[in-house]
Design a protein around this nucleic acid. Sequence first.
DNA 1: ATTTCATATAACCTTTTGGTTATATATAAG
DNA 2: CTTATATATAACCAAAAGGTTATATGAAAT
Lengths: 104, 104
Amino acid sequence: MTDIYRAIADPIRRKILRMVSQQECTQSDIVASFSISQPAIKKHLAILLEEQLLLERRVGKFCYYRLNTPVFQQAYLQLQSELGLVLDNKLAGLKHYLENLEEE
Amino acid sequence: MTDIYRAIADPIRRKILRMVSQQECTQSDIVASFSISQPAIKKHLAILLEEQLLLERRVGKFCYYRLNTPVFQQAYLQLQSELGLVLDNKLAGLKHYLENLEEE
DNA sequence: ATTTCATATAACCTTTTGGTTATATATAAG
DNA sequence: CTTATATATAACCAAAAGGTTATATGAAAT
């Protein structure tokens, strides 16, 4: 359920997220922004949809994509707190080291 | 170079990053923390080393791993600015929308 | 010297990823 | 009605990911 790490693993998907966050885009808008085929883009969109970071809207023959902002925001916050821990741990280790300098 | 997105794509690698950020660990420490085989852990370590997020130190038969803090920190900052853009764009879109409410 | 323990590596397997080309379908435009 | 355009899907491919078991190597302990 919403594996943002999977979603952002590919640079093409990260660029798609940036595009659709600026404004809704049709699939062909997106295809036109890259030098890979339409089915390849479709697969990236499928992964982003699967991870619920995108919403799609069908109008006639067009398919519009936009960011699923609440889901993205929540997943991104969670990512930050998970990865932030890594640096926090490092700081805690340094703090502990400094506090015990005289004992060693 | 240093594809942090690849490095963090797997939950096992994220947990390893957290472990070694608390304190240096031997490979067997790490193996003992998971329920997968030693060669499987070795492959995750290889990916983290390849992406330069880990440093290794050999002492006798032991191999110690620690976080490559500067590289991790820099890569994480870059990730944050790249993904932060997505939300910034969204806010900019909202701002633009609000500013032009009366015109539509 | 032999056993034990930590690590390394090889061979193998399955699934996922990231791409392709070709083709089908559905809507819009001429 | 026919053509053009947007999207969907199928079949295929190569490489990467994520795992396994079995085995080799190298250092430490008995």
